[in-house]
Design a protein around this nucleic acid. Sequence first.
DNA 1: TAGCACATGTAATATGTTACATGATTGA
DNA 2: TCAATCATGTAACATATTACATGTGCTA
Lengths: 173, 173
Amino acid sequence: MSLRFALLGLLADAPGSGYDLSRRFEDSLQQYAWHAKHSQIYPELTKLADDGLAKVVAEGARGRRTYAITEQGRADLLEWLRTPPDHRSVRSEPVLRMFLLSTMPTDEARLLLKELATEADRELIELTEQVRLGDEQSGGDVMAFGRLAAEYGMRQLAVARDWAQWAIANLPD
Amino acid sequence: MSLRFALLGLLADAPGSGYDLSRRFEDSLQQYAWHAKHSQIYPELTKLADDGLAKVVAEGARGRRTYAITEQGRADLLEWLRTPPDHRSVRSEPVLRMFLLSTMPTDEARLLLKELATEADRELIELTEQVRLGDEQSGGDVMAFGRLAAEYGMRQLAVARDWAQWAIANLPD
DNA sequence: TAGCACATGTAATATGTTACATGATTGA
DNA sequence: TCAATCATGTAACATATTACATGTGCTA
């Protein structure tokens, strides 16, 4: 069901076509929260419309159909957010790789950790700049879509970098 | 393929039956990295054995079969860890929910953020104690299975808590 | 006028979940 | 002897990926 609510969430922020949502998925949710290909997004939008949670509000060139969230869609999304999940559904290949680092020879683990630290730092710098630009536009509103998540992303990247450096420093010789 | 390598990783640490691995999955990988039910684990173990990456090393009461990783299994696992992933495969419902917080009324978001902060703090205390106990037993070896990941988990929990508190403090009135 | 980004879909396959199904051993 | 935990599996269904398939509009 998460894909459904991810899409409703994006539509709650602004209407968009399958193509738009596919792009917005990549730009916002992809890195830390959820991902989906267009081949999953298009059928799900059709279902959303069938269920009355979204509707086509415009048709444009090249068969483009812009969807908007309906009142019912907003209600369902809110309801879902209000209901505490009974389990923690997480699948993260990067974190799985971190876990399995201890099955590697120490030297190789150290190498991977170094790459990880460098990469996290690079991404942190990039995201920080993006956030700065966004804050300028929104006047620093933390309830702007994606702003809370971006803050979380920055803090996560800092953790990834610092953790990797800690690990390198504490590896046996 | 991640499930396969998650299982190989657990087996690289110690042999175990499907039942064992199911438990070890819950105890270690579940929270931050990966999860799988027994209905997925048993068939995958059979495939692992068919492919020569694991083998049955003991049979016990109640049809219990203990699997161990083979040389080929270790080689495949190492090979996988060495190959940098070309995409970031992450699916996290908790983070998705954080993302969608900005589609809620501020008051409700504030409430959820408070619960989140409290829960993260509670879990952090619990995990910290577990890590302390583990360190006592292992003599503080960071390459002990799960130790790097536990450190990452602690830091992540601290981030979740601090981020939620930051969000609460910066929410518009 | 060629190449790129836009734009949508389906089919085959792989992965993951829920429900069904069965039975043994252990400890209170 | 009863309940919990141990122990393994399959079937039906849901979700997600990869490959196939088609065509438009813009701009250099």
